[in-house]
Amino acid sequence: MDKVGIARGLFYYYYGDIWKKFFDELNVEYEISPRTNRQIMDMGLKKANDEMCLSLKTYLGHICYLKDRCTYLLVPRICNYNSSNQTCTNFWAIYDIVNNLFDKKVLTYNIDLDKKETLKKGLFRIGTTLGKSKLDIKKAYIKAMKHYYDNRKKLIDDNYKRLNSKKIKILIVSHPYNTYDDMIGGNIVKYLKSNDIEVIFSDRFDTFKNSGVKLSKDLYFKYSKESLGGIVKSYDKIDGIIFVSSFPCAPDSLVNELVIRKIKKPCINIIIDESEAFTALETRLESFIDMIRRNAYV
């Protein structure tokens, strides 16, 4: 039987819910790679080009893990949600990179609203390649989308609830594939939580289109725009901001610099590369937290 491999990296943190439900409804077997560990990362580092960003390297590591375990790999390509909502160019190229580096069948869909390529069309195409009938696919698609929106709403509500707590609140501004990945942002979140701090995530806000426009007028990266929207929405209630980015992240290098120059809250810019040592980072985080605590007392 056909088995679809889903890599736990990049897109998974945006669309994972949709995919899981969609394949469940269609009775397709799938395997999700485990949470990132040293082994997976090492495989990625070997396969990837030296200068690729850390998130992309880990993604390739996940693909390495999956390549012998399933018949198909699911690698979408996400280009834009109209021309003022583009994504990083790595997202444009990822399909071609995987297709050329690995000798494996790749299931793909393309989101490119400028050329009228949507998620719906893409999922329908995937369904037909797997040999399912149109009616089944339609039902699965509707259920998957509903499931996704319900889940998303829960996350957002939870985030807002935490925003009203009386503890010290720190906003983490980052892409979800960095924040929730164990080898990239996971340690930071864990450390903050163990120090009795309420962590708020910038990607879990109901930010539509233009809430980030206060901070940057010309920005056209969709995911960065959403992060900025998160900053604007929570700005009055938080005590500090932590920017987390993986080593040479293209949009973050510009956007974070601009935002740091514009905001007046205490903030720290953390850039993570493939070294495993957490001690240096711990020192920085500790002093940052101490500073915020002192600010709160004064």
Partner: peptide, 12 residues
């Protein structure tokens, strides 16, 4: 250095 599109193209 750090030109993202070209880094992607290099492997191809």
């Amino acid at each position: 250095s750090f030109c993202t599109p070209e880094i992607g193209a290099m492997s191809l």
